[in-house]
Computed example of a mutant assay.
Amino acid sequence: MTATTTEPLIREYYDAFNRGDRAGFLALLAEDVIHDVSQGEREIGRAAFARFLEHMDRCYRERIEDIVVMTTPDGRRAAAEFVVHGTYLATDPGVPPGTAPASGQRYILPAGAFFEIRDGKVARISVHYNLGDWIAQVNAGATP
Rank of each mutant, 00 (worst) to 15 (best):
M1D: 10
T4I: 12
T5P: 07
P8Q: 09
L9T: 03
E12W: 03
D15Q: 10
N18Y: 12
R19M: 10
R19V: 09
G20F: 06
G20I: 03
G20M: 02
R22I: 15
A23W: 10
G24R: 03
L29A: 02
E31V: 03
E31K: 05
D32N: 11
D32Q: 10
D36P: 06
V37I: 15
Q39W: 15
R42P: 12
I44R: 15
A47W: 09
F49G: 01
F49E: 02
F49Q: 04
E54L: 08
E54Q: 15
D57P: 11
D57Q: 15
Y60C: 03
R61W: 08
E62K: 08
D66P: 05
T71D: 02
T71L: 04
T72K: 05
D74W: 04
R76Q: 15
T87C: 01
Y88K: 01
L89M: 14
T91I: 10
G94V: 10
G94F: 13
G94D: 12
T99Q: 02
A100W: 01
A100V: 02
Q105I: 00
R106W: 04
R106C: 03
R106F: 03
L109N: 00
A113S: 15
A113F: 04
I117M: 03
I117A: 01
R118L: 09
R118Y: 08
D119N: 07
K121C: 10
V122P: 01
G132M: 13
G132W: 12
G141I: 00
A142M: 06
T143G: 14
